[in-house]
């Protein structure tokens, strides 16, 4: 898969391929190009792209493909965050450090807005990144802990499709559920 033990050769070649400035290690890694639904192009290292089960199977089906991989269900912003996450995970895979990984995951999650988190879930689901999906699910679960119905609705950006009467009936029926939730 990755170019593991190849000797570091011609630095210029690789930097030229990669727009990322952090490729000082300069291994001739294969890049895979992904295209988001809003037509942004992402070049990622093959090892990162192979974290996406969906992309991986794309190449398993057509190994020689050099095409751009279209991701019609994925927009640029969550995709870039997902790529960022997977890059780090690969480092931990090569160099397992559970504590460090936990710390990174926690930081990754806390700095994301509610919307970012929620938007990443479909992406992680579509790309079939199980680790990320687990992490995101738990983060979402934590964030809606002890929150009101309104809060949860806003959190997920879901429209209230109950009529006023139905809503009033729910409130009557589940009066206790509306007690003791956090203020915000």
């Amino acid at each position: 898969m990755s170019s593991s033990t190849d000797s570091p050769t011609l630095t210029t070649e690789t930097t030229q391929l990669s727009p990322q400035p952090d490729t000082e290690t300069a291994k001739p890694t294969k890049k895979i190009t992904l295209k988001s639904s809003d037509n942004q192009i992402f070049e990622v290292e093959e090892s990162v792209a192979m974290e996406f089960a969906t992309v991986k199977s794309f190449f398993e089906d057509s190994p020689s493909s050099t095409d751009i991989v279209p991701l019609p269900n994925v927009t640029a912003k969550p995709l870039s965050q997902v790529i960022e996450f997977c890059k780090e995970q690969i480092k931990f895979k090569a160099n397992p450090d559970e504590a460090q990984k936990k710390k990174y995951n926690a930081e990754f999650l806390t700095e994301k807005s509610d919307k970012d988190l929620v938007d990443m879930i479909p992406v992680a689901n579509y790309l079939e990144i199980k680790d990320l999906l687990d992490v995101l699910n738990q983060a979402v679960a934590d964030r809606i802990e002890n929150k009101s119905v309104e809060y949860v609705r806003n959190f997920f950006g879901i429209d209230n499709d109950f009529t006023a009467e139905e809503e009033a009936a729910l409130r009557r029926e589940h009066a206790w559920a509306y007690e003791g939730v956090d203020e915000d």
């Binding site: 938007d119 809606i144 002890n146 949860v152 729910l170 559920a177």
Partner: peptide, 30 residues
């Protein structure tokens, strides 16, 4: 938002790990 377009099993996974107190709120969302 397209979380509402998620397959049910993803939603169920999330619901299965949230606490019951959060579920109470989720139930009345939509």
């Amino acid at each position: 938002c397209y979380i509402s377009n998620l397959p049910h099993h993803i939603l169920e996974t999330i619901f299965s790990i949230v606490t019951i107190s959060a579920l109470k709120s989720c139930r009345d969302v939509c």
